[in-house]
Design a protein around this nucleic acid. Structure first.
Length: 502
RNA sequence: GAGCCGGUAGCUCAGUAGGUAGAGCAUCGCCCUUUUAAGGCGAGGGCCCUGGGUUCGAGUCCCAGCCGGCUCACCA
């Protein structure tokens, strides 16, 4: 222990004293009879008299998070999961042996207790401990009880301490788990099969992003951590698994921010015989289901702070149906332009200049439109909105619109200015897909490190025939942020990526 | 990657004008058998992020770096 301080030294001293008393400071199996939460639920309203007339005995375990001494007695706050219950240690009930152990307890220790329930003078439901068992001695002190642990760096680096000291953090991660469970239940209920596809790719594909590179020693090849599972999931559709989904990590070698972690969790699902229009009501249904999972049955609105230091909370309304507007119409709307004007490249260029888009010169019409969309439309998309009909330039894996080959059968769902879902009718024309890959490779050759690579095996799969299919990806971390009202992705990822310590 | 803010005891934070480093909680000792931020009395605990510089003297001023937060840019 490099940073040995007096508090650790004191606890090590107590460790010796415990061993001299014949007590194993690191305990063993303990038969827990009740959970603190259950006791509170069951006896939270039981009166003092009722508990005396019909005594209730219980055996519970947990971590000591507060310890208040009164000479020959002490009150302990025992944390058991998200709940805490008070236990009372009294010399004449515990006996000499038990009381000696009690005297060596510290905040942070794990204990098991047996005894009867009673109410204190202040009417708090409390366990009067007859039998005290040490389950594990903690050697390090916990943060202060009142302010807790607030240093963000320590919270992320030592999440275990954060989880102990900040109950709301624990709640967020429990909610995250419930959200993911609810997604699985929802999709399985719709006939989807959960699958796992490779995380290590020989050709990273399925998204425009820079990959992480690693190396396989025996094969003697470099492998890439996947940026998306898309191309593998579509291979499964080719193989006849008509409805598949995967919830797993993607890795993108990019910057880190409040909405970006290098590894993030993505849901992707693919549905044969469907198109992107089928996915809009499905997405509404799924997300409303998740809103209800988190906020309760029948909930239509969710409070959300758009920025960390925002005083005011925005109310997000999930009442169906959600707004749908095409990419082009959304831009025209914001610019106050007609659909006629917005097709004019000169007009679009002038607007891009007017709205301070980051122009390098020589942008195509659609490149300008993409810049304008980000600049003027995205920040306004607070309420759930489906943006449809994306330009083919930025949709290399999506089917073209039947009546307009410049556009694709695609939508993105925006909530609180962020892209939450991305879906399209999957391109199943292997000849067009090859051209799209070639166009991407041309971009790569020009120095675009994020452009996609040509994947011969994927093309071979498409050549075997992929039924018309609709596919969608949902960024789980950002969705969890929305549903738990968190403004930083690090608050919904247990161990966010940080620079090495020291 | 750029800008702004921060790093002082285990934790949360003060630190005046550049002049011996403080509080609360936690810890240790004593008192206390119904408290809940328990209380009372006493005590210990510091690489003031790191490295340079200015100065008689730096937690404080200057420069560089490390780590973090926020904002912006790219990405989901």
């Amino acid at each position: 222990m490099d940073d040995l301080n007096d508090q650790i030294a004191q606890r090590l001293k107590k460790l010796d004293q415990l061993r001299r008393l014949g007590i194993d400071p690191f305990g063993g199996k303990f038969d827990v009879q009740d959970r603190a939460g259950d006791l509170i639920a069951r006896y939270g309203t039981a009166t003092k008299d009722a508990l005396e007339q019909k005594p209730v005995t219980t055996t519970i375990a947990g971590r000591v998070i507060a310890l208040r001494w009164f000479g020959k007695a002490a009150f302990v706050s025992l944390q058991d999961g998200v709940d805490a219950i008070q236990v009372y240690l009294k010399k004449d009930v515990l006996g000499e042996q038990g009381f000696a152990l009690a005297g060596l307890l510290d905040i942070g220790d794990w204990i098991g207790v047996s005894g009867r329930l009673f109410r204190t003078k202040t009417n708090e439901l409390t366990v009067e401990v007859k039998q005290l068992t040490l389950l594990c001695k903690a050697l390090r002190p916990l943060p202060e009880k009142w302010h807790g642990l607030t240093d963000v760096e320590t919270r992320y680096r030592q999440r275990y301490v954060d989880l102990i000291a900040n109950p709301e953090v624990k709640r967020i991660f429990i909610t995250r788990g419930r959200i993911i469970q609810a997604i699985r239940t929802f999709l399985v209920g719709k006939g989807f099969l959960e699958v796992e596809t490779p995380m290590m790719h020989q050709i990273p594909g399925g998204a425009t992003a820079r990959p992480f590179v690693t190396h396989h020693n025996t094969l003697g090849v470099d492998l890439y951590l996947r940026v998306a599972p898309e191309l593998y999931l579509k291979r499964l559709i080719v193989g006849g698994l008509n409805r598949v989904f995967e919830i797993n990590r993607n890795f993108r070698n990019e910057g880190i921010s409040t909405i970006h972690n290098p590894e993030f969790t993505m849901l992707e699902f693919y549905m044969a015989y469907a198109d992107y229009t089928d996915l809009m009501p499905l997405t509404e249904e799924l997300i409303v289901e998740l809103v209800e999972t988190v906020h309760g049955k029948g909930t239509q609105t969710v409070p959300y702070c758009l920025h960390p230091n925002d005083e005011k909370t925005t109310t997000l309304s999930f009442t169906r149906p959600w707004k749908r507007i095409s990419y082009r119409a959304a831009i025209a709307d914001r610019l106050g332009a007609t659909l006629q004007q917005i097709t004019d490249p000169a007009y679009v260029l002038s607007q891009a200049k007017k709205h301070q888009c980051d122009l390098k010169g020589g942008e195509s019409y659609w490149q300008l439109m993409v810049l304008l969309f980000e600049q003027v439309v995205e920040p306004t998309l607070i309420q759930p909105t489906f943006i449809t009909d994306f330009p083919v330039e930025i949709s290399p894996l999506a089917k073209r619109k039947a009546h307009n080959p410049e556009l694709t059968d695609r939508f993105e769902l925006y909530i609180a200015t962020r892209e939450i879902a991305n879906a399209f009718s999957e391109l199943n024309d292997p000849l067009d897909q090859r051209k799209r890959f070639e166009a991407q490779m041309a971009e790569r050759a020009k120095g675009d490190l994020e452009a996609q690579r040509l994947d011969e095996d994927f093309l071979r799969a498409l050549e075997h025939g992929m039924p018309p299919t609709a596919g969608e990806g949902i960024g789980i971390d950002r969705l969890v942020m929305l549903l738990t009202n968190q403004t930083s992705i690090r608050d919904v990822i247990l161990f966010p990526q940080l620079r090495p310590e020291k």
